[in-house]
Lab assay of single mutants.
Amino acid sequence: QTVQFNGLEYHFPNPEEAEKFAKKVAKELGGEVRVKDGRWQID
């Protein structure tokens, strides 16, 4: 599972970890999490 933001990609072994990370980062950055092409993106 991949999380993308600021032009970087973070890879996680399972979707739960990816989701948790994506939501944490979005909260800290005040961004929005969305899934695109099977990847988590933070904008």
Rank of each mutant, 00 (worst) to 15 (best):
R34L: 09
D43I: 15
Q4G: 07
A18M: 01
A18I: 00
K20F: 08
H11N: 08
Q41H: 12
A18W: 01
A26I: 07
N6T: 01
D37H: 04
V3S: 00
E19S: 04
F21T: 02
E32F: 12
K36R: 11
G31P: 01
E17I: 05
G30H: 08
K20Y: 08
V35C: 15
D37A: 02
P15M: 10
Q1R: 13
F5P: 00
I42G: 05
Y10F: 13
Q1K: 12
V3P: 00
P15T: 09
K24C: 15
Y10V: 07
K36C: 13
Q4N: 10
Q41E: 14
K24W: 10
T2E: 03
A18P: 00
E17S: 08
E16P: 01
E17R: 02
G30K: 07
D43M: 14
A22S: 02
F21M: 04
V33Y: 06
G38C: 14
D43V: 15
F12Q: 00
Q1P: 09
Q1M: 13
A22G: 01
V35S: 07
E17F: 04
Q4E: 14
E17M: 10
P15R: 11
F5D: 00
T2M: 08
G38V: 01
Y10T: 03
D37R: 01
R34I: 13
K24Q: 13
K20M: 09
P13V: 10
E17K: 04
Q41I: 15
N6L: 11
E9D: 10
P13E: 13
E9Y: 09
Q1L: 12
D37M: 01
E17T: 07
V33T: 07
F21I: 03
G31T: 10
V35D: 05
K27A: 13
V3T: 01
K36I: 14
E17A: 11
R39G: 08
P15L: 08
A26T: 04
D37N: 11
I42C: 11
P13M: 11
W40V: 05
L8E: 11
E28G: 07
I42P: 04
F12G: 00
G31D: 04
H11C: 15
V35G: 05
F5I: 13
F12W: 01
V35I: 12
E28I: 14
G30R: 06
T2I: 15
K24I: 09
A26V: 06
F12T: 00
V3K: 00
I42R: 02
H11V: 10
F5L: 10
F12Y: 01
A22R: 04
W40A: 04
F12E: 01
E19V: 03
L8W: 12
G30C: 13
F5M: 06
D37Y: 00
G30T: 04
Q41M: 12
D37V: 00
G30L: 05
N14M: 04
I42L: 04
G7I: 01
D43L: 15
K24T: 10
Q41G: 05
E28H: 13
E16L: 09
Y10H: 05
E28M: 14
V3C: 02
A26P: 00
A26Y: 02
W40S: 04
A22D: 02
V25K: 08
V35W: 15
Q1I: 12
L8N: 10
G31Q: 08
Q41D: 09
A26E: 02
D43N: 10
K24G: 09
G31S: 08
F5E: 01
A26C: 14
A22P: 03
H11W: 14
E19G: 03
F5Q: 01
G7S: 04
L29Y: 12
G30Q: 07
Y10Q: 04
F21A: 04
T2K: 07
N6K: 07
P13N: 13
D43K: 08
K23G: 05
G38E: 05
K27R: 11
D43E: 12
E28W: 13
N14P: 00
E28V: 11
P15Q: 10
V3G: 01
P13Y: 07
A18Y: 02
G7Q: 04
A26W: 03
E9C: 15
Q4R: 12
V33F: 06
P13A: 12
G38R: 02
L8M: 12
K23M: 09
G7T: 02
W40H: 05
V33W: 05
R34F: 12
K36E: 11
N14T: 14
D37C: 14
D37P: 00
Y10D: 02
R39W: 08
N6W: 07
V25E: 01
N6P: 00
Q4I: 15
K24N: 10
A22T: 01
E16A: 11
V3A: 01
G38Q: 03
G30I: 03
V25T: 06
N14F: 05
K36D: 07
Y10M: 07
T2D: 03
D43W: 15
H11D: 06
G38I: 01
K23W: 06
L8A: 09
F21Q: 02
F21L: 03
A22W: 06
H11G: 04
P13I: 09
K24E: 12
R34C: 15
G38D: 06
W40L: 10
R39Y: 14
A26N: 02
K20E: 13
F12I: 01
L8F: 13
V3H: 01
E19H: 05
G38F: 00
K20Q: 12
G31N: 05
K23Q: 11
L8Y: 12
F5V: 14
I42F: 05
F12L: 01
Q4A: 13
V35N: 09
E28C: 15
E32G: 06
Q1G: 11
R34D: 05
N6A: 10
R39F: 13
L8Q: 12
E19C: 14
H11Y: 12
H11Q: 09
L29S: 11
T2C: 15
F12V: 00
A26F: 04
N14Q: 04
W40G: 05
R34E: 06
K24P: 00
G30P: 03
P15E: 11
Q41L: 14
V25D: 00
G30S: 06
D43F: 15
I42D: 04
H11M: 07
R34T: 13
F21R: 01
G31F: 13
F12D: 01
A18T: 01
E32I: 15
L29A: 07
A18F: 02
G30W: 05
R39I: 15
N14R: 02
R39S: 09
F21G: 03
E9S: 08
F12S: 00
K36A: 10
Y10R: 05
D43H: 12
V35F: 15
E16N: 07
F12H: 00
V35H: 11
F12C: 14
L8K: 13
W40D: 04
E9N: 07
F21Y: 07
A26R: 02
R39C: 14
G7W: 03
Q4F: 14
E9F: 09
Q1A: 14
E28T: 08
V25C: 15
E9I: 14
A22Y: 04
G7P: 00
D37I: 00
Q1E: 07
V33M: 07
Y10I: 11
E16V: 10
L8P: 01
V35Q: 09
R34P: 02
Q41F: 15
K36F: 01
Q1S: 14
K20I: 10
N14E: 05
W40Q: 04
G7H: 05
E9T: 12
D43Q: 11
Y10N: 01
V33D: 02
E16I: 10
W40C: 07
V33L: 11
R39H: 11
K36H: 11
K20C: 15
K27Q: 12
E17C: 14
A22H: 01
T2F: 08
P15H: 10
V3E: 00
I42N: 04
V25P: 00
N6R: 08
P15G: 09
K20G: 07
G7L: 01
K27H: 11
G7D: 07
G7Y: 03
K23I: 09
Q41T: 14
E9A: 06
Q4T: 13
E19R: 06
E17Q: 08
A26K: 03
W40M: 06
R39D: 06
N6Q: 09
I42E: 04
Q41A: 06
V25W: 09
G7E: 05
P15C: 15
E16F: 08
E9H: 07
Q41Y: 15
K23A: 08
E9P: 00
G31W: 12
K20R: 12
N14K: 03
E32V: 14
N6I: 04
E19Y: 08
E19K: 06
V33P: 08
W40N: 05
P15A: 14
G31M: 14
F5K: 01
A18Q: 00
K36T: 11
N14I: 04
Y10A: 04
E32S: 14
G31I: 13
L29E: 06
T2Y: 10
P15Y: 13
F5Y: 11
I42W: 05
F5R: 02
G31K: 10
G30A: 05
F12R: 00
A18D: 02
I42S: 04
K27T: 09
Q41R: 06
F12N: 00
R39L: 10
E32R: 13
N14C: 14
A26H: 03
A18H: 00
Q1Y: 15
K36M: 06
G7F: 03
E9M: 09
Q1W: 15
A22F: 05
